[in-house]
């Protein structure tokens, strides 16, 4: 797991209050206990704060799984 993925995983562990949570690209809300529509926004906001980026509403609506979320996030970070 890259440094980037570890940081994303730490955000997930913090938001869902589960220190053993392991993320993977195909992971979806239904695979994680407590990932409802309210926690979803908390997750997005925590990612925004941690990585100092901004998502658009359209991007957020288009995410189908953790992989797509990470790709979009990585695209916003300086190379």
């Amino acid at each position: 797991m890259s440094n980037f993925e570890t940081r994303v995983q730490n955000v997930f562990r913090e938001v869902f209050d589960n220190p053993d949570l392991n993320i993977y690209r195909e992971m979806q809300a239904k695979h994680v206990v407590g990932w409802d529509s309210l926690n979803h926004i908390t997750l997005i906001m925590t990612l925004e704060e941690t990585f100092k980026v901004k998502f658009s509403t359209r991007e957020v609506m288009g995410f189908q799984n953790v992989g797509e979320m990470m790709d979009s996030l990585r695209g916003k970070l300086p190379a």
């Binding site: 529509s37 979803h40 926004i41 997005i44 906001m45 509403t57 957020v60 609506m61």
Partner: peptide, 13 residues
């Protein structure tokens, strides 16, 4: 939830 609430809540976060 998907097409009204979540976009709105995201805008108002």
């Amino acid at each position: 939830r998907d097409y009204v609430f979540m976009p709105l809540q995201f805008q108002a976060r």
